[in-house]
Amino acid sequence: MEFGWLEITVAAIVISLILGVIFTRGSSWIEPRFWKNIAIVTSLVMVVFLLILTFDTLASIKMGNGRVPEATVINKKISYVYDEQKRWYVPKVSGEEPLFGKIWSEEEALALINKGKMTIQSKACMDCHTLLGNGGYYAPDLTKAWLDPKWNLLIKDMVGANSKEEAMAKWIQHPDQYPTFQRKMPDLGITDEEAKAIVAYLKWMSAIDTNGFPDNFKADEQ
């Protein structure tokens, strides 16, 4: 969008004011009619602004339009780096990094993360975890789970896996067998295929530009 937020905010207020003045001409503020017209005008202006912003937002959060990555980002190396200009962290996508030993085609990648999303919803992960900071507070935030150093530092050896993604898939299937906290995650009956899909989804999600949330995240350097 060409306009900054300040212009948008000022425009919404000024337009409400002008229309408010026009539509309440001739009625005293003590009449309910006065407030009725103000309420109608302001609400309509706000709704129109919300709709315009929604179109703009939807365009910029389409997969592959910059802020939200394409599915094939699961074939790339993802990191989380500090941006001096913005003064917050941004995801950085660089070079090839196969997932589960393979480069996924566009259709395959999309099908995989789609499966991941459906599994995350069907198992109600979000009623324990937060994703992008929204959900339940009983378990860690998963926004950047793919980048968490604990997979390589601890879990890989614990579950006996050769790669981070394999470690994640194994752990997610049997979290109750490898607890790292007295509050365990239950075994949710996740199949091999679903576990891979979840890992792909977490990798994809870690590449979303979230305006720097979470700040200071200590991403895995590997």
């Binding site: 500090y82 003064r87 917050w88 962290y89 720097g212 700040d215 200071n216």
Partner: peptide, 8 residues
């Protein structure tokens, strides 16, 4: 923003 921040 983060480098200015202290928890307190």
């Amino acid at each position: 923003m983060h480098n200015l921040l202290t928890g307190s």
